[in-house]
Amino acid sequence: MQASSGLSPREEQIARAYAGGDTYQQIAESLCLAPSTVRTHLAAIYRKLQVSSKLELMSRLEGPAPDPKTQPELSSVISELALSLEEALAREKALSEVLRIISAAQGDLDQVVPSILNYALDLCDAEFGILFEYHGNSRFGARFSKGIPAPFQSWLAARGVFPVGPQTGLGRMVPQRDVIHIIDVKSEPLYQSDDPLRFATADLGGARSFVAIPMLAADRLVGAFTIYRQTVRPFSEDSLRLARMFADQSVIALENARLVSEARARAS
């Protein structure tokens, strides 16, 4: 397959996958890239092909090149704005789909939470995520996960419900009831200590940048929604807003499941 209008073979792969409907996360997984790298490639592809939508991209990949446009700087700005608009529309679509799944699931967390985690990883450019359930006294259990490396998954499964240290991300989140954003888990003094969770997160999970969002039902802490990047890449304010949104939807799902369970118990 010949590259279109100067696209590299890798750019051609990404362009065709994106035009065909794949998400950043799906493309990243198939090509062994970070989701943010996929986005960087797409921004370059939009500039090179001088397109401003996914439909134009699909048409451009299959048809002849248009007449060259002037003002390349303007074209670059337009392409970036077009890609940002498509990302905003993807966020709205994801939220609508999550709400639909929650409504239809009738308390089935196994159906809802993996979908929420999947959307969160895709839209926040993260490699893996975990929903921790809170059991009081700074104890957590990993109830759901998505994309987690097998060694870290096995470590969490072996421990079940376990206490976390006060200097860990989860440990800091408990009293603060606020988002904990760690730019590099290996750069903190805790990594040089013998804290088991920090070792497992960094060495078994390969995590570097990390965010934990408290899941609150009224004033009650019910869990933590955590997402991880395997490179040192801080989460932007936009990503944190998205993560909070998905954490809120996870709380709704957990509370729905609790109410359904209580109703079934009363009926039996």
Rank of each mutant, 00 (worst) to 15 (best):
Q2V: 12
G6N: 00
G6W: 01
I14G: 03
A17Y: 00
A19P: 02
G21A: 05
T23S: 15
Q26V: 15
L31R: 09
A34N: 08
V38Q: 00
V38R: 00
H41M: 10
I45D: 02
L49T: 08
V51R: 05
L61Y: 09
K69L: 14
P72Q: 13
L74V: 05
S75P: 01
I78E: 06
E86P: 03
E87M: 09
R91T: 11
E92Q: 14
K93D: 13
E97L: 08
V98P: 01
L99I: 12
A105K: 02
Q111T: 07
L123S: 00
C124L: 08
F128M: 05
F132R: 08
H135I: 06
G141N: 02
R143A: 12
S145Y: 06
I148H: 06
Q153W: 06
R172D: 00
I180H: 04
I183F: 14
F199N: 07
A200E: 07
T201Q: 14
A202F: 01
D203E: 15
D203H: 12
M215F: 06
A217G: 08
A218E: 13
R220K: 10
R220S: 12
V222P: 03
F225S: 09
R229M: 04
V232G: 06
V232L: 12
R233D: 08
A243Y: 03
A247W: 03
R258M: 05
E262C: 06
R264K: 10
